[in-house]
Write a protein that binds this DNA or RNA. Structure first.
Lengths: 138, 138
DNA sequence: CCTTGACTTGATCCGCGGTTCAAGTCGCAG
DNA sequence: CTGCGACTTGAACCGCGGATCAAGTCAAGG
């Protein structure tokens, strides 16, 4: 009977993450094996979704610690809602920056300004970085 | 006579970067002082635009090394055009991911699923992470 | 039984992007 | 000339996000 549990190797392969990364995530509280097969970690398939979430969030610039906070959260956690909304706002700004940068890049690819980085069109889009949003160490 | 050169302290303040960061960027070839005032670095004002570019690119996920490659580039560098276009494409994907994540986050902020991360709507948007672009270890 | 091979662990190492530190050097005020 | 304070340098250190390594443990197969 196949308990439908996945071996770490399989999870690693299907998530395209290294086993060491899976163990690392576990140590950080992001995932947990459903059980063991001898010493081997055995995961329920939903860990794959979890990992997709983690990968996605990380690619969006969230730290492991941030992701962890969202994962352990209860829906009753009103504070979390606030943080999520705030993060959504951050993402919005980030999306704006990336969009501008992409446009600049596309322009630069066909622009013949001497040092390309000095093309006025290029600089115009880049200049709009109002608040560096430096997270105070807290 | 004020040569319109800026002291490192002034650049640091106006760019919201630490002096140590400016020296670090210099070591990496991203910026260069126009001269010295005694030992003190003196910069022409355009360094501020340069720094804005760097900050913007870094916030978009570019490494220092990548930014450096773009900065030193000549317009005659056809290869660079290709890389720029490629980067624009990468950014496009990234923008897509971020947009989806933002939407998920906004939804999650008002969703009452038990562990919020398991909300189907939330997961749907997250799942679309096609290729992690992990470079196989040769 | 013993070997094999895939996993386990904790520890150590890595590159990145800086910050911090000790020690030195400058120009200016008194 | 003697501080003083703001800069200079190189080197050491830091947190992050893992990768890698040595040594141990397991289940299965011969």
């Amino acid at each position: 009977m196949d308990d439908a549990l996945l071996d770490i190797a399989e999870v690693a392969q299907r998530s395209a993450l290294a086993p060491s990364a899976l163990r690392f995530y576990e140590k950080k509280g992001l995932i947990a094996p459903a059980g063991r097969n001898g010493l081997r970690r055995a995961y329920t398939p939903d860990v794959l979704e979890r990992l997709a979430l983690i990968t996605c969030a990380r690619s969006a610039g969230f730290s492991i610690a941030e992701v962890s906070r969202f994962i352990v959260a209860q829906p009753s956690d009103a504070d979390l809602r606030v943080r999520m909304a705030a993060k959504a706002g951050d993402l919005d700004e980030q999306i704006g920056r990336l969009t501008r940068l992409r446009d600049s890049l596309q322009h630069a690819a066909v622009c013949d300004y001497e040092p390309i980085v000095d093309c006025p069109d290029f600089k115009r889009a880049v200049g709009s970085v109002p608040e560096p949003a430096i997270v105070p160490s807290e």
